[in-house]
Design a protein around this nucleic acid. Structure first.
Lengths: 190, 190, 190, 190
DNA sequence: GATGAATGAGGCTTCATTCAT
DNA sequence: TATGAATGAAGCCTCATTCAT
């Protein structure tokens, strides 16, 4: 028996991400996804229970991937502020390189498919971010303030920059990376 | 002849906003909107050309309403930082009281319905915000930094707080309003 | 009490005829007819029971008008062949000048609105044509052949010329009027 | 996978033709066609792009079928007048046996669906008829007259006979076939 | 009489999903 | 496993008709 083809799942994922970027999550229909992935629509149902399942799996996959990419590259031995700068650069780089994926994540979160269950399964990211900030607090580098506020600020800022970038209104370069980090750091530094 | 009822437009708007919050913009179908608004689906087409038109009108309506509510309450004779605090409170209050409307605005912006034309018609808000920040710069209170970065930070932060609030993860009180403004002010102050 | 406005009926008739020519009988909707006639759609229902009634009345109106126009102009004292030529010219002229009306008649006849009842009410034309041909037979100028065949030939020929004319494939001039009559006369002459 | 069933196309064609005869082209809706053809309405869209496409394909199909049936049976070695009689008989037979199809063709031609493109794709018939008449002219058997007039006469006559037949007003038998051909031949003979 | 807002049935089409091959 | 034909529910929109003004 041939095993389920891992490559096919990736083609489905890629097709979905691309399509959502082009036409939004509502326009990403099964026939279109299948066509873009180069297979019959029925085949999708071999790999996923239904559309909801496909989107959920993709969401969780991307979410975990992004967390590991950004936090994974962190040099934990470096000074905190440097680590933070590193993290910020990673985030911004991701917003540029992987913005189709970001778009998908954003769209999914506000779609009818996103439910409590998925939300709970995806808090790993928040946890990592909060742990990281905790370390900053311990070193008296970060304000003693509720973590969720700091997190909201970082995440919202990042997200908006990604949106602006997608619209061609935000051009990334070293200077602007530095400036944006300046804003961020001044906000949270103790 | 029954006269065209202005109140009906508001019922349609309200129904749309509520529905988008519940099921997303993709799930807000014409039949559902009509039912929620208590009228036949055909009636919608007396007031709006089609679904796209309805969403666009609603978007522009809410956008302008929000701009005028927030900036309108501003006491222009007050010191800059105080004005800013006032603005931030207004924004947060709006995010709490009108979060269904905010959700609609966010969803619409990333939907296939949002196009260049609408974007251009809605830059009033950005203009107002940038003008306000310019004043801060002139008084040497705000960093001399690209305005769009500051704007992105404010808007993104605000947006994320609204999202958190919707999920019941963010509880607004004077203390937290003060803390969040603290983050914001430290970020941008000169 | 104002009496029903005869002029309005004519505006409705004219609008319907024009519209049917432009978009076919299926595309001639009540809202469009009303708009073209310069009145509200509800007004149509003051003058006609419903759409079916409007079309039937218009059909009967045009049919009788055409019969009286063509046969009415006939000089009954002239020699038969001359009368026939006259008639043919009248028919062709009508096909050119009133082709929107012809189109309506043709479309109506094959629409779901055309029923037995209307058919029977509109045989006046056939009767007149057959009476006329009878006279030709009596003068031994027309073949002694079933009248319906002759009628079918004349009517069908005429109709097809009208269709060709509408498509710009048939250009009417004295020469071609003469030629077509030549065909017709040779067909039926004794 | 279920293979695309060619027979299904024929069932769709047949259902459409029957329905158009019963309720006109405006009354032949997709749901009704599908029901008559014994399938779900969505299935139609596997075989045809949309309603317009279905009608166009059917038109071209019937047109070419009719041309090949009538002209195909022609014995080109026979004398011209005999060939012509043969042709006329074929036409009339077709008008009787396939009058639902004829109705469809006529209705389609005056519907909004009929456009330049379809017209050009269907001139094969006219060409064949004109070529045939040309041969008659060359043999000095047919009047030297514009071909389109002769064509219009034949086609219009035939068409009207078909209409009469549909209404039960025209009964086909050898005698009447002969008489009608007599009219036709006398009209065009040199 | 005249208006046109209001209705909801029904048309065309697409979609998620199933299942024969 | 893979295919894509088949399904019918559901979406958007228009229409004929009614009726409050």
């Amino acid at each position: 028996m041939r095993t389920k083809d891992e490559g096919k799942i990736n083609r489905i994922y890629q097709a979905t991400v691309d399509l959502v970027m082009q036409v939004g999550i509502a326009g990403a229909t099964i026939p279109k996804i299948a066509k873009k992935a180069g297979m019959a629509s029925g085949t999708l149902y071999i790999y996923f229970e239904n559309k909801e399942d496909l989107l959920r799996q993709l969401y969780l996959h991307l979410k975990s991937e992004m967390v590991s990419v950004t936090f994974g590259a962190l040099d934990k031995s470096a000074p905190f502020k440097l680590q933070m700068f590193q993290l910020w650069k990673e985030f911004l780089a991701m917003a540029v390189e992987k913005y189709p994926e970001r778009i998908f994540l954003e769209q999914y979160k506000i779609s009818p498919f996103y439910d409590e269950q998925v939300m709970e399964a995806s808090i790993g990211w928040v946890k990592q971010a909060e742990d990281f900030l905790e370390e900053g607090k311990n070193q008296l580098l970060v304000k003693d303030i509720q973590k969720d506020l700091v997190y909201s600020m970082m995440y919202g800022f990042l997200n908006e920059l990604a949106v602006q970038h997608r619209r061609g209104l935000f051009h990334l370069n070293d200077h602007r990376i530095g400036d944006s980090f300046g804003l961020l750091w001044d906000a949270i530094k103790a």
